[in-house]
Design a protein around this nucleic acid. Structure first.
Lengths: 332, 332
DNA sequence: ATGAAAGCGCTAACAT
DNA sequence: ATGTTAGCGCTTTCAT
């Protein structure tokens, strides 16, 4: 059997209370006692049970991370930095992929609550905001990542989507493009990117046709489909701003299949700057989210909230950065 | 406060034992009682605490997954299928990236033990086998994924690396290549792939020069470096078998920088068939691991082991499949 | 400085 | 069919 606090107490010839104190580094006692107990722990290879201590009201030292899909490079890269930062504070992370499916969202949220995670990080899109309200009501720490909801009074860490959309589009407009399509996701972040897209047009005195605004869910296939749809409608833009790298790659591949040259016939800008943006040829011009900074920040923030339950809610906005690579060029 | 089993008992007018029985669907009781209790649970929005039940000896319904790096698409894709399959059995997954660093391996192993995970899945390379032996000694369920160690009597799920290496190399040899380099990882799986590479040479009556065998760790940069090294040594092969997609992509990019045309000047075969293999141009010829099947299997197996602790250890081998795409061509 | 004991929310053996 | 009760391994208050 694994040794318990009782075994250690016996081994060290003290009471379990004393052992508990050395485990938690609390209370006062003779140095020799402390050493004595420590040695006993070592001898028995004792590991305090987190279950038991969690039961007494202490935390589980576990974070719940809800993402749409961990196999999407954007989220796996984000997850990696979250994992590392969390471990620095002795926290581990349980990850769940929701597929943006409200049933799964509910299921995982409940599951993680039963596991008594100390806090939740909810990334990019959560369909059922009421579930989140439920968490708030129970005063369970929650931070939203890469999304924020005006209706929900919750701390959030995201990139400035408006600015990102604006810069991507401006880049294209400046390069001479006048017929620019945008392929967005059905997410709040995309909504802001669309506004940025509009703003860029407005600022240059251009009007943007509603027909150039497409919505889909993030995947290579859908990106490809979208482009084909444009071609069928015989309204092929000279440039496309895809609201994430996955879609952008779909567009690149679709272009290839359709015999369109990138960037000569079609310029493409992505969003996220995942590893995928560096593996295409030509490499993808994209709007980078500072994934590492954001991941670190979101962990810092959730840990803060766990420590002092009702802190003022902040909304942290990071700056996106346009990274010009090979998929965009000027025309005329 | 969150309702406890006592609250439910009071609400339903029964004892906590009865409530416990309906939670676990055990014991016998009047249907009306069961219904009555269920309604009480609903009314209070009661969620049984997994902490408490874990403390009484039941499992935590949590799996520990150790991978080298969750941000590597191969592992994130694998993690995704593991997560899904685990959830089907009501298990969640805590993921940890070890970076193949023995310190981290140790740290995470201990951490997860303290969290009392019901079992471990250890993927691709674990430096310190002794740690694993420790687990075995404590009779903690453990399954190795994408690696197996002859010395360790442990269940494993992997792809047939020998066969994979053999097929990748045969494909190249059949295409007329005679100077084929292999870039391997410092892992056991790569060892078998190298043997497959040798076997293919032998079978065709070819000798393979030791100078053509390179070892590195998986990353795009390292792939690039390796190719440059070859060029410096002025021994540029006509084909390279990279032991994973990441390295293969590095080689592709390196080739581009060096002015080598793929596949005309240099054929390249990867391994894994991750999403990355589909985003390069030309798309990467690679050896596919059946990620979904493997992920499902490894979960099934670990759950079996959790159920009946000492089962016969099995070694499951999946078939790799060569997927010919654009980075290989015949010469002469 | 150290220890005794109550309790955290649950399970399971044993009573009733 | 239902309830009583003794743990599970730990924290924490209150004594000593």
């Amino acid at each position: 059997m694994k040794p318990t606090i009782y075994d250690v107490a016996k081994e060290a010839g003290v009471s379990i209370a004393t052992v508990s104190k050395v485990i938690n580094n609390t209370g006062k006692m003779r140095d020799s006692t402390r050493e004595n107990v420590k040695e006993a722990m070592l001898r028995l290879n004792y590991q305090p049970s987190l279950m038991a201590s969690a039961l007494t009201g202490k935390g589980t030292e576990t974070l719940g991370l809800l993402v749409p899909d961990i196999s999407n490079p954007f989220f796996s890269e984000m997850a990696r930095t979250i994992e590392d930062r969390a471990h620095e504070s002795g926290m581990s992370v349980i990850m769940c992929s929701t597929d943006e499916n409200p049933e799964k969202e509910k299921k995982y949220l409940e599951l993680l609550q039963r596991k008594q995670v100390d806090g939740f990080i909810v990334a990019s899109s959560f369909q059922d905001k009421n579930l989140l309200k439920g968490l708030k009501k129970l005063r369970i720490p929650l931070v939203m990542l890469t999304q924020d909801d005006i209706g929900l009074d919750v701390t959030s860490v995201s990139v400035d989507d408006f600015k990102g959309g604006y810069e991507a589009t401006s880049h294209l407009i400046t390069a001479g493009h006048r017929n620019i399509a945008i392929i967005a996701e059905n997410a709040n972040s995309s909504k802001m990117r669309i506004y940025g897209y509009r703003e860029a047009h407005a600022e240059h005195g251009l009007i943007c046709s509603e027909e150039n605004i497409f919505q889909t869910t993030a995947s290579i296939t859908n990106g490809k489909e979208c482009l084909k749809e444009m071609v069928q409608k015989e309204n092929v833009p000279t440039a496309i701003f895809a609201c994430n790298d996955l879609i952008a790659i779909g567009v690149i591949q679709g272009a290839k299949e359709l015999g369109l040259k990138v960037p000569e016939d079609l310029s493409i800008v992505g969003f996220d700057n995942t590893i995928l943006a560096t593996t295409t040829v030509p490499a993808l011009t994209t709007v980078a989210q500072p994934i590492t900074e954001m991941g670190n920040k979101v962990v810092d923030v959730i840990i803060e909230e766990i420590k002092e339950k009702n802190r003022g809610k902040e909304r942290v906005l990071f700056n996106p950065q346009l990274i010009v690579r090979g998929t965009t060029t000027s025309i005329d």
